[in-house]
Computed example of a mutant assay.
Amino acid sequence: MSATTGAPPVADTDTDEMVTVRDLDVSFGATRVLHGVSMSIAAGKTVGVVGESGSGKSTLAKVLVGTVRPENGQVTVDTIDVTRISHSQRGAFAYRRRVQMIPQDPFSSLSPRRTIGQTLAEALDPLHARVRRYSETIAFWLERVGLSADMMARYPHEFSGGQRQRVAIARSLIVEPSFVIADEITSALDVSVQAQILELLAEIKDSLGVTMMFISHNLAVVQNVSDEVVVMYRGEVVESGPVAEIYADPKHWYTRTLLDADPGAPGFTLDL
C-alpha cells in the first residue's frame, strides 16, 4: 500500500509518552519561527505552553495537528510520526479523531448556518451528519459540558461566549480523542466565565484521562490546569519542568519576567 493512502507511519517511542517533539525547526520564508524545540507529554497529563505573542506556541500546535510541516525534527503523537505523515493521512478522519484542537474563538469556528446539533453530528460523521442518528450522543455531550440537550436545535448566535466555548469543548471531545490542544481558550472570556470553563475542562480531562496541551500567555491559568509547563521565547524552549518547581524557582530570566508580570505571582509589582 502506498504512503499516500496507507496507514499513518508508526514511530518507535516510549509508550508512556503520548506526545514527543525532538529538535523541531519551522520557518516561514526567511523567518525562523521554531528552532530546536523539544518537549514531551506523558499520557493523561497536561502540559502548559506559555510565552508572549510571537513565541511560537500556535505554530507548535499547528505542527502537532498536522497543518504545518516542519523542516527538521521529529514529532510523534499517539504513536504516529507526524513528520512522515502524508497530506491525505493528515486530513484523514482517523487521525483527526485522535488529535483535536479547541479554538481560541469558538464563534468564528462555529458555522452560523448550522445548528449546534448539526455541528456536533458533523464532528462525529463528516459524510453523514444526521442529528437524529446521533441525537443521544449529542445530548449526552451537551449535558456533559453544562448545556441542555434541547440546545442542539439552536444556532451559535443564540449562545453567550462562555456557552459557545462549552460547545467547542463538546465538539472536540465528542470523538473521544487521545490528545487535545486548548489554544488560548479563555482569553476572550471574562474572569468569572474563565473560571467556569477551566473547572469544566479539568473535570472532564480527569474523568476521561485525556492528554492535553494548554496554550496560554496567562501563567496563573496555566498553573491551575497543568502538571508541567514549557516556557517559549522567540521560537525556543527556554525552560520546562513540573509546574510547582518552575513557579517556585524559575531558572531563566524570561520565565522570571513572565512571573513578575503576572498579578498572581509573588514578584508582581505595579508602579503608580
Score class of each variant (00 low, 15 high):
Leu24Lys: 02
Pro177Glu: 12
Gln223Ile: 01
Pro263Phe: 07
Trp253Met: 15
Ser172His: 11
Val10Ile: 13
Leu34His: 02
Ala195His: 08
Ala149Arg: 15
Ile215Cys: 04
Thr115Ala: 14
Arg113Phe: 12
Tyr155Trp: 13
Val237Leu: 08
Leu127Pro: 00
Glu203Gln: 06
Ile102Leu: 09
Gly44Asn: 12
His87Leu: 07
Thr137Tyr: 01
Tyr233Ile: 00
Arg32Gln: 15
Arg69Cys: 01
Ala123Gly: 09
Thr83Pro: 03
Ser148Ile: 05
Leu272Tyr: 15
Ile85Pro: 00
Trp253Gln: 13
His35Tyr: 03
Asp260Cys: 03
Val68Asn: 06
Pro70Phe: 00
Ser160Tyr: 04
Val68Met: 01
Phe214Lys: 13
Ala265Trp: 04
Thr211Tyr: 02
Gly51His: 05
Gln196Asn: 05
Tyr95Asp: 01
Met151His: 15
Met232Ala: 06
Met152Tyr: 14
Leu147Pro: 06
Leu219Cys: 13
Pro242Asn: 15
Met152Asn: 05
Gly44Thr: 04
Val63Gly: 03
His217Gln: 07
Asp25Ser: 00
Ser27Arg: 10
Val26Ile: 12
Ser178Trp: 01
Leu24Thr: 00
Glu228Val: 00
Gln100Pro: 00
Glu17Ala: 11
Glu239Arg: 02
Gln104Arg: 07
Val229Cys: 05
Gly162Asp: 14
Leu127Ala: 14
Gly162Tyr: 06
Ile185Thr: 10
Leu110Ser: 10
Val19Tyr: 06
Ala244Phe: 11
Thr13Arg: 07
Thr59Cys: 01
Thr257Lys: 05
Asp125Tyr: 07
Asp227Lys: 07
Gly6Asn: 14
Ser178Leu: 03
Ser172Thr: 11
Phe179Ala: 04
Ile116Arg: 08
Leu124Ala: 03
Gly56His: 00
Val180Tyr: 11
Thr59Phe: 00
Glu236Pro: 02
Lys57Pro: 04
Gln118Thr: 15
Phe107Lys: 11
Leu201Met: 11
Asp260Gln: 09
Ala202Phe: 00
Ala202Met: 14
Asp81Asn: 09
Ile215Asp: 06
Thr4Ala: 14
Ile116Pro: 04
Arg133Gly: 07
Gln89Trp: 11
Ala92Ser: 10
Leu127Gly: 10
Gly117Thr: 05
Gly73Lys: 02
Val175Trp: 09
Val175Ser: 09
Leu270His: 12
Gly161Lys: 06
Glu52Lys: 11
Ser86Ile: 06
Ser53Pro: 13
Leu147Cys: 09
Ser226His: 05
Val230Asp: 04
Thr269Met: 08
Glu236Trp: 01
Val19Met: 07
Asn218Glu: 06
Lys45Val: 06
Ala149Gly: 05
Ser172Pro: 12
Met18Val: 04
Val37Cys: 07
Val37Asp: 03
Gly161Tyr: 14
Val193Thr: 15
